[in-house]
Structures are given as structure tokens and as C-alpha cells.
Amino acid sequence: MLGSGTRWLAGVLIVACTVLVGPSAPGGAPFAGAPPVEAVVDVVPNRVMTWNICNPCEGDDVDRAAEIAAHAPQVVGLQEACVRDVERIRDHLEHRYGLVYRAEYGTVLRSWGRCGGAPWSPGAFGQAVLSAAPMTDPVIVEYPDGGSEDRGYMAVTTTVGGRSVRVFNTHLAQRRQEAVRADQVGVLAAEVARHDRAIVLGDFNAVPNAPELTGIQALAADADPRCGPSPTGGCEPTTDWHSKFDYVFLRGVVPLEHGVHPTPHSDHHPLHADLDTTGRPAGEAGPGSR
């Protein structure tokens, strides 16, 4: 049996180790050094967010989770997302901030260079949607022509602002591939047109007055009314190179407020929009409509 002096010394050592190491994140990763954010009570039920988290970049999943938690959207669409990163982000959101999200993935590429893993079992790369509400009817579509890299869109049905809505998340072809993006918009718009109430999130790699965006702009309005095909001024850039490439397009949904949030953790900035989904969109026939 240990003497009282020995037990006292052991207790001191345990406390000292706890102070030095700090509490652990999911999977054993320490939380020490994570940027503080204001205490989060719950998600904002009518808020959506889109964010290209940049890959390959030196972004840390703890920092990415902090960015999302600072705005606590009901739904967030991520682009350039590795499945493992999204899993860690989701764990940090739950265990650090008490924000519980479900995840669906829109994998279009398996890339060891981007996502790590074993060369014979590389990580999955593409889009992801995190939602505080359950998601149903997930769809993943790879564009027939991705351009210089495979690209696609995903879609889920979930709840935003108390109403069921179809949410799309996409990442179009890289810059200087206008014709490819125009074809991709055609594929995406054909599906969006099937729904009376839809939210389209994503990195479109094109400025608001780019001709290739007209196909989606004819169906859905930008959450920022200053950023239409004929910008009225004040359209906020969403990238480090001072261009707007990131969008929240709305079909049958009314925008209330929006914000762009510059961040050091990606070359794209998170964009959020608060929405009114309670009104009946024009042309909706009633409970049996899409």
C-alpha cells in the first residue's frame, strides 16, 4: 500500500500532466491552441453557409470547425473536402461547441495527394453537406466533363427554417474553362428546375456577370441582391484575389441577411445567408407539390 506522501506526489504529477497536455479532442488530438469562439447555444435554424475549405492547404480542422461554429449554420456546404477532414470537423463541432451535425458526402475523386491515406486506399475528395436536421434522398452526380479535374454536385433534402428544402452543393471547373462550366451549369440547372424550393451552394469559379452562370441565374436568385448578372455595386468578394466565386442561389426562398467572413484558413471565405423559407413559392400547388 502506498504511503500518504507517495499518494500526494502521484496526485501532483497527474495534475501537472493534465495542465501540460490539456484536454483531448476526438481521436486524442489536443485542443490546446485552438482559437476561442463565443459560446454557442444552438444552430441558427434558417442559416446556410458555403465554404471552399481549400485543399491542398495548410488549414487545420480545429480552425475550420471554429469558423463554422462562429456562425452556427443549420446547413453548411463544403467544397474541396476530404472525408477524413469532414469527420474531424464534425467531431470538433460536437465536442468543442455542442453543435451536432449529420454529414453526407459528394465524393468525385479518390486522391492520395489531396486526402492522404494509403496509396492503394486513398482518401475521398469532393463536396460535403453538414446539416443539423436529418437528410434524405442524397444524390451524387459527376459532371460528364469535369475539366482539368473531376467535378460534380450533390443534393439532399433537409430542413431549413422549419421547411423542407432541396439543397445542392457543387464545385465547377477551374478558372479559364468557361465552356466547361457552362455545360456543368446546364446539368445542374436541369435538376434544380425540378424543385419549387431549392438552395444551391457552391464554388462556381466565376464572377456574377460571367455568361456561364446565366443558366442558374435564370432559375434562382443570389442571396446577395447586389450580385446578379448586372451587379448594382457593393457585391462582396469571397476569395483572396478579391473576386466573388462563391454563391448561395435561392429558388422559392427569400433572402433576409448575408455575410462574407474573411479567414486565414482558406483562399475562399465562408459565406452565410439567413433565409425565409416559410412563404409559399410562386407556383406551389400545395402539400402535394415537390
Rank of each mutant, 00 (worst) to 15 (best):
P211N: 12
G233F: 12
D224E: 01
A210L: 05
N209V: 01
N209C: 04
L213Q: 06
I216T: 08
A206E: 13
D222S: 15
R226D: 01
P225H: 08
A210W: 08
N205P: 09
A223K: 00
P208V: 06
G233T: 08
I216A: 03
P211Y: 08
G215V: 07
A218V: 05
T232P: 06
G234C: 11
A210T: 11
D222Q: 11
A223H: 06
P225G: 12
G233L: 11
N205W: 03
A223N: 04
A206P: 01
T214A: 14
L201Q: 08
N205T: 14
L201C: 09
C227P: 02
S230L: 13
A223D: 09
N209Y: 12
S230Q: 15
G215L: 06
V207A: 11
A221Y: 00
P225E: 10
G233Q: 12
E212V: 02
N209I: 00
A218F: 01
P211L: 07
L213M: 15
V207N: 02
P225V: 09
N209D: 15
A220P: 11
L201Y: 05
A210E: 14
T232Q: 04
T214Q: 14
P211V: 11
Q217W: 14
G233N: 04
P231M: 07
G215P: 09
S230H: 14
D203H: 12
R226G: 00
G228I: 09
P225K: 04
D203L: 06
E212F: 01
A220E: 07
A220W: 07
I216S: 04
S230K: 12
G215H: 03
A210N: 13
A223W: 00
P225C: 08
L219G: 08
Q217N: 07
G215D: 12
E212M: 13
N209M: 10
A220G: 08
P229A: 15
L201D: 01
N205Y: 03
L201I: 06
I216H: 05
D203A: 04
L219Q: 11
C227N: 01
G202P: 12
T232N: 04
S230P: 00
D203S: 07
P211T: 14
A220T: 10
Q217V: 10
G234R: 05
D203N: 12
P208A: 05
C227L: 03
A221W: 00
A223L: 01
E212D: 15
G202V: 13
T232W: 01
R226I: 00
L213V: 13
C227R: 03
L213R: 15
D224A: 04
G233Y: 05
P225D: 07
V207Y: 01
F204M: 15
L213H: 11
T214M: 04
P229K: 05
G202W: 04
V207E: 14
N205G: 03
T232V: 07
D222T: 06
G234Q: 09
P211W: 14
Q217P: 00
L213G: 10
C227W: 02
E212Q: 15
L219A: 07
I216P: 02
S230N: 15
A220D: 06
T214D: 09
A210R: 09
D203W: 08
D224P: 01
V207R: 07
G228E: 12
G215W: 06
